[in-house]
Computed example of a mutant assay.
Amino acid sequence: MTTAAKLLAQKQQLLERLQEDPGPNERAEIERLLQQIDTALNLLDAGGAGGSGEEPD
């Protein structure tokens, strides 16, 4: 699984947790993690890594 795919999977899990109506502290933590994932995805995209983010063999 590529780095981008892993990040997208984590993002999906966090979005699902948000739909479960978490408490304010958990909501803040989830939103913080979502921001980190979005930043990482943007960096991967800007770096032209082709979405893999993995070293070739």
Rank of each mutant, 00 (worst) to 15 (best):
S52G: 09
Q35K: 15
L41I: 11
N42A: 15
L18Q: 01
A46P: 04
G47N: 07
T2R: 07
G50P: 04
K6Q: 14
A40Y: 04
E29N: 06
L34H: 01
I37V: 03
P56I: 07
Q10M: 13
A9H: 10
L33Y: 09
R27W: 06
D38F: 01
G47C: 05
L8G: 00
L33F: 11
A4H: 06
Q19L: 08
P22D: 13
A40G: 03
L43N: 12
S52T: 13
G51H: 05
K6E: 11
Q13M: 14
N25S: 13
L14T: 01
S52I: 06
P22G: 12
I37P: 00
L15Q: 15
Q10C: 09
L43Y: 06
L7Q: 05
T2N: 01
E20H: 02
Q19C: 05
P22S: 12
G23W: 09
I37K: 02
L33K: 15
G47M: 05
G23P: 01
A4I: 09
L43F: 08
L43D: 10
D38Y: 01
I37H: 00
Q36P: 00
K6T: 11
R27D: 05
P24L: 14
L7D: 02
L43E: 15
E16V: 11
G47H: 02
D45S: 12
Q10V: 03
Q13R: 15
G23V: 07
G51E: 01
Q19E: 06
Q36H: 10
G50I: 02
N25I: 14
L41P: 05
L7V: 07
A40C: 08
A4G: 02
L8N: 03
D21G: 03
G50W: 02
K11Q: 09
Q12G: 04
K6H: 10
G47D: 06
G48T: 00
I37D: 03
E31D: 07
E20Y: 02
A46R: 00
I37R: 01
Q12Y: 07
R17I: 07
T39I: 11
L43A: 08
A40D: 08
K6N: 10
L8C: 01
L34T: 04
Q13P: 00
A40L: 13
T3N: 08
A46G: 02
G51F: 00
T39C: 09
L34I: 06
G48S: 01
P24H: 11
